[in-house]
Design a protein around this nucleic acid. Structure first.
Lengths: 158, 158
DNA sequence: TATTGTTATACTCTATAACTATA
DNA sequence: TATAGTTATAGAGTATAACAATA
């Protein structure tokens, strides 16, 4: 996107860093979306929803999915509907609260997700091929520091 | 988005890194979009287009904008149309090629962009408040390494 | 009253492909 | 023929708000 070139010399280093990070993320994300589409005829939000469920075999309520995916509830309903229609996830009743569901992967959904996850993992690993393990670790830590501080700063506002 | 938690222990570090980077980028990007909307009633693509032009006072052709913004041509036409209507950018004739335009900021557009850019810069600086200058530099370098290798790998495929 | 989830709607962003005009 | 740009269209992705059912 050449956003980076926007960073003039008078601009703070943080801005140059952000433009580089944004560009790179968009580059990788665009590739992931396109491969999910081509190889599995699915989308990133659908993949993400299934990934959340894969981590929570007992299932997640709609509002939990909404929070974790950082999108509003209506969208989760739509994506879930699609996946239910395709037999990849199911809505299970929650005992003691007839308003809520617990969404979870079906066995078929789990099988299909595992296949996608393997491919996805390989795309990501090659995206970071330019770094050695020490650098991967270092990048991971630095981003963690930014994120932690970001979240703390946000809490202060609330 | 809690994407991160997806990184099981058996997953490669690259995957955990990617999920953290994606989450953080989306977090910051979401905040930038929302502030651009609230404070300036504009969008990120519009801001990006103007940012490209700010860096190229002589203007850019549509296909140059398209390449730099990493979107296809039709979209650039739409965004440009909006900005022209609002008097923020203008289409200038290119001598010697009556098919092409050169899009550039109007004085009003430049004034308005400068104001947005100052605000944008401050949002970004505070997003990375958790890092000291050395860490900012380190993160910038690591991301540059990933990006460079990524681009080289892509070229080999072509 | 508050919460869970759904429905309805609208808008931004994007890609694709057909098209016009010019080179 | 190839290139610059536009138009038309469709679909993803998202937020908002009104709504129904249950707590």
């Amino acid at each position: 996107m050449d956003l980076e070139a926007r960073g003039h010399s008078e601009h703070p280093e943080e801005l140059r860093l952000w433009l580089r990070m944004l560009t790179l993320t968009q580059l990788i994300e665009k590739q992931v979306r396109s491969q999910l589409r081509e190889q599995f005829d699915t989308t990133l939000p659908r993949f993400d929803l299934m990934a959340q469920l894969e981590r929570n075999p007992e299932g997640l309520k709609m509002n939990e999915l909404s929070r974790r995916m950082m999108v509003t509830g209506g969208n989760v309903t739509g994506i879930t509907d699609q996946l239910v229609t395709e037999g990849l996830v199911e809505r299970a009743l929650v005992e003691g609260d007839r308003r809520a569901y617990r969404v979870r992967l079906t066995p078929h959904g789990r099988t299909q997700f595992d296949e996608m996850a393997r491919a996805h993992e390989s795309w990501i690993v090659s995206a970071f091929d330019g770094l050695n393990p020490r650098e991967v670790e270092s990048l991971h830590k630095l981003l963690g520091k930014v994120k932690q501080h970001y979240n703390e700063a946000k809490l202060e506002v609330l």
